[in-house]
């Protein structure tokens, strides 16, 4: 019996191969090969351009540990990732709940479209439109001063909050979508059963709804935290001089300083740190879920 199952799955794999091959070929060419090249670069002294001499070294990785700046920037980026993720939960989860459990039919579709809208616009356009809103004399400043009886100066441009606002705006749809999917899967009769047993809405949220939607929260948090820690576009455009983060430093190495080996080494350190964080968090999150 067991043998039969084994042969069955083996022949299943063979017939599935033509279906799997394109995807894995593509992943190999598009991700694995460039990434391997980057690993290779990260151990070089120089880019092998215009015949410069180069040799293998651990210098690039040592730089991270010898200069405190990189660690400071990494911690700042991790904090940025954490804050953006938290704001996305605070903003995205209630929206997902209303979409999944309160709205029905047409109005749900319309609100859903509004949530996904940021996905359809160009990232750069989104960020520059935030710049127009946030700068002094910009849309937010003008609008608030038109309404408020006293004069206030709103100039959020080139500040930490501006970076947060831009990033949250870009990433909140991920949280809404992942939470929406898990919340929608919760049977309405569970909520009714809880109420019939005398639970208040808050008790239902704490004991049933949040635990059952934990997989969505975790997936959303992972989808947001990882790219935000390495982000560079939003910090650079909305943060200005305050917007120096780990991601912008890596970008500098590649496009401004042309120190690809250092940039590659810093990238892999980031990858390692993020993987360690996810690995440490997963048992805790699994228990919660």
């Amino acid at each position: 019996m067991a043998g039969q199952v084994a042969t069955g799955s083996r022949s299943g794999l063979r017939s599935a191969l033509p279906l799997l091959l394109p995807a894995y070929l593509w992943l190999t060419v598009a991700i694995f090969l460039p990434l391997s090249a980057m690993v290779f670069f990260s151990f070089m002294t120089e880019l092998p351009l215009s015949g410069k001499a180069w040799f293998f070294t651990l210098e690039n990785y040592a730089t991270f540990f010898s200069q405190g700046l990189y660690l400071t920037l990494l911690l700042a980026s991790l904090r940025l990732g954490l804050e953006v993720t938290l704001w996305c939960v605070v903003i995205g989860y209630p929206a997902a709940y209303v979409l999944a459990k309160v709205l029905k039919g047409r109005s749900r579709e319309a609100i859903f479209l509004l949530v996904i809208l940021p996905f359809w616009s160009n990232g750069l356009v989104r960020i520059f439109s935030w710049a127009m809103v946030l700068r002094e004399g910009g849309i937010l400043d003008t609008a608030l001063n038109a309404v408020l009886p006293f004069k206030i100066n709103i100039d959020l441009m080139y500040s930490y909050p501006a970076v947060i606002i831009g990033l949250v705006h870009s990433y909140v749809p991920y949280m809404v979508l992942t939470c929406y999917l898990t919340l929608q899967a919760i049977d309405d009769s569970l909520i009714e059963a809880g109420r019939s047993l005398g639970a208040s809405r808050l008790q239902m949220l704490k004991r049933v709804i949040i635990p059952l939607s934990m997989p969505g929260l975790v997936a959303g948090a992972a989808l947001i935290f990882v790219p935000v820690v390495g982000s560079f576009m939003e910090p650079r455009i909305l943060g200005g001089r305050t917007g120096t983060f780990y991601g912008t430093v890596i970008e500098d190495q590649f496009v401004a300083v042309f120190n690809w080996p250092l940039g590659a080494a810093l990238s892999f350190i980031l990858l390692a740190v993020v993987l360690v964080i996810l690995a440490l968090a997963s048992p805790v999150l699994k228990r919660a879920a």
Binding site: R195, A199, V208
Partner: peptide, 20 residues
């Protein structure tokens, strides 16, 4: 009076047990 204050017990067709 809303259901949570009515002190009733209810059994649902699909049981509605909390899976967590």
């Amino acid at each position: 009076v809303p259901v949570e204050k009515r002190r009733i017990g209810m059994v649902f067709q699909n049981y509605a047990l909390f899976p967590n």
